[in-house]
Design a protein around this nucleic acid. Structure first.
Length: 469
RNA sequence: CGGGCUGUAGCGCAGCUUGGUAGCGCGCUUCGUUCGGGACGAAGAGGUCCCGGGUUCAAAUCCCGGCAGCCCGACCA
């Protein structure tokens, strides 16, 4: 039997590896328009589980879901100077509709601060209306120069939260709560993707924000991927859209607003953090299929046993599927490995004769034989262990790929295959420009202890720099 | 927008130099044998050779003009 690689070429050529996995795991295809993406049912099932987990956390902070229009009058964008400048190059604009040229072009939303700002101004009258905490799950369009499936597509799905507050402190505290209790908690406990949390340097800030917080994950090849972002918008958008409230003292006051988002990019991040040359490794928390039962022979007693095993696991709360494919054993196993199903249960006559089945972990390849009666206890436990082990190995990989350095030159060297951590004072200004010449960017600023600074003015900050997707 | 490259079956490609019946691998369909780590045999289906024009008895192949896509930089969730 000739050995043959599932995925070629391998990790040396990472984007190509990535495309192969996405295609073979039946996650997504390129859409008919350059940069758009078709998400296939398996990829969407992962996204749905992510949505559920994140939506629950968002609602726990008191935010409510709503919906705002896809089409935004172009004039809304010009109301905030930095915002329009930042987004103009990547807007898709409708100029023609109903068989006529439009008098005012319509922008397909790249993000919804502007429309939502317009409505916040109408909805907020009194301090009693605050905080106003809104979220929406929608598609947005950004005409990027180099699209890549999941990581940066022209159209993508996301959650965008928009809130208005009476004070800077309240806005700031809420933004930090979202960043920690929603985003970081989700990344650690659901996606098992540890992120460096920090603030963006001014050069990388969201257009119109006074502060942008980020979570930067370390991909398998050492490059960075921004997994989510939370912006403090100060009073910039409130001023542009007249979002006032009447205070207890009867004064008209401008609101402080925030916005925060996380997108289908997380699916791509998941693949590139946990995947290997055999395909995906999907953490059990977001695995549409947590265990696949494979009858090793197409014989009725084996098939029946497989069905019983699946029924038992299902009743134990495991998302399970029986593989009734006709291919050879090896083919079927490989196909499930590519899809990253965390646990494989092999049901065959030799084991069955002794009342046993074989269970195999996708993440380590480790095999064990267990009694039929123990499965409903062992598989859920194993799924929990895989979830925590995936996080542990991602943390270890992140740390291996991060070097402490003491100069921009050393940082450039370290950024060839990972992150570099150094004093922000060494980088700010000319150092950042020098890094940029080698496609290395400042991913985030942190305090010495790794915690989130109030702002870049704090002094004594460190920065993490890397190449990014 | 700079610098490289490619358009031929669903996917990956050969054929083009030197014009002459549209090919290969994978995948797909049917039947049979298989099935504890990527099986095998037999038979089949599938084409606007990117588009337009030119040269020629004859163009995937030569000439001219378009268009599209990919990779490396600047943008970005």
């Amino acid at each position: 039997m000739a050995s043959q690689s599932v995925l070629t070429p391998q990790s040396q050529d990472f984007p190509r590896w990535y495309q192969d996995v996405v295609a073979k795991a039946e996650m997504a295809d390129n859409g008919p328009v350059r940069g758009t993406m078709v998400i296939r049912p398996y990829g969407y099932a992962i996204w749905e589980l992510m949505q559920q987990e994140m939506d629950r956390r968002i609602k726990d902070t008191g935010a409510k879901n709503a919906y705002f229009p896809l089409f935004i009058p172009e004039s809304y964008f010009s109301k905030e100077a930095e915002h329009v400048e930042g987004f103009s190059p990547e807007l898709a604009v409708v100029t023609h509709a109903g068989g006529e040229d439009l008098t005012e072009p319509i922008v397909v939303r790249p993000t919804s601060e502007t429309v939502i700002g317009e409505f916040m101004a109408k909805w907020i009258q009194s301090y009693r209306d605050l905080p106003l905490l809104l979220n929406q799950w929608v598609n947005v369009v950004r005409w990027e120069m180099r699209p890549r499936l999941f990581l940066r597509s022209s159209e993508f799905l996301w959650q965008e939260g928009h809130t208005a507050h009476a004070s800077y402190d309240d806005a700031s505290a809420y933004a930090r709560r979202i960043h920690n209790e929603v985003y970081n908690d989700f990344m650690l406990n659901v996606l098992a993707c540890p992120c460096y949390l920090g603030i963006k340097p001014p050069s990388e800030r969201f257009p119109g924000a006074i502060n942008s917080m980020t979570g930067e994950a370390v991909m398998r090849d050492g490059k960075a991927l921004q997994m989510m972002t939370t912006h403090e918008l100060g009073r910039n958008f409130a001023r542009a859209f007249d979002i006032f409230y009447q205070s207890e003292e009867g004064q008209a006051e401008l609101c402080y607003t925030t916005s925060w988002g996380a997108s289908t990019r997380m699916v791509g991040g998941l693949i590139m953090v946990h995947g290997d040359d055999n395909g995906l490794k999907v953490p059990p928390a977001v695995a549409p299929i947590q265990a696949v039962v494979i009858p090793v022979r197409d014989e009725s007693d084996v098939l029946e046993a497989a069905d019983r095993v699946a029924a038992d696991l299902r009743s134990a709360g495991v998302r399970v599927e029986v593989d009734r494919g006709r291919g050879s054993f090896g083919r079927r196993v490989t196909d499930w490995e590519i899809k990253g199903v965390p646990v494989r249960v092999e049901v065959g006559p030799r084991d069955l004769a002794q009342g046993l089945v074989t269970i195999v972990r996708r993440d380590t390849g480790e095999k064990a034989t267990v009694g039929l009666g123990a499965l409903t206890k062992d598989v859920p436990l194993l799924l929990e262990r895989i979830q925590t082990d995936l996080l542990a190995s991602a943390v270890a990989h992140r740390d291996e790929r991060t070097q402490d350095v003491t100069s921009v030159a050393e940082a450039l060297d370290a950024a060839k295959d990972g992150f570099a951590r150094l004093a922000w004072d060494l980088v700010a200004g000319e150092g950042e420009a020098e890094l940029n010449t080698q496609a290395v960017t400042v991913r985030c600023l942190q305090r010495q202890d790794g915690s989130m600074p109030e702002s870049e003015d704090e002094g004594g900050l460190i920065c993490l720099v890397a190449k990014s997707y």
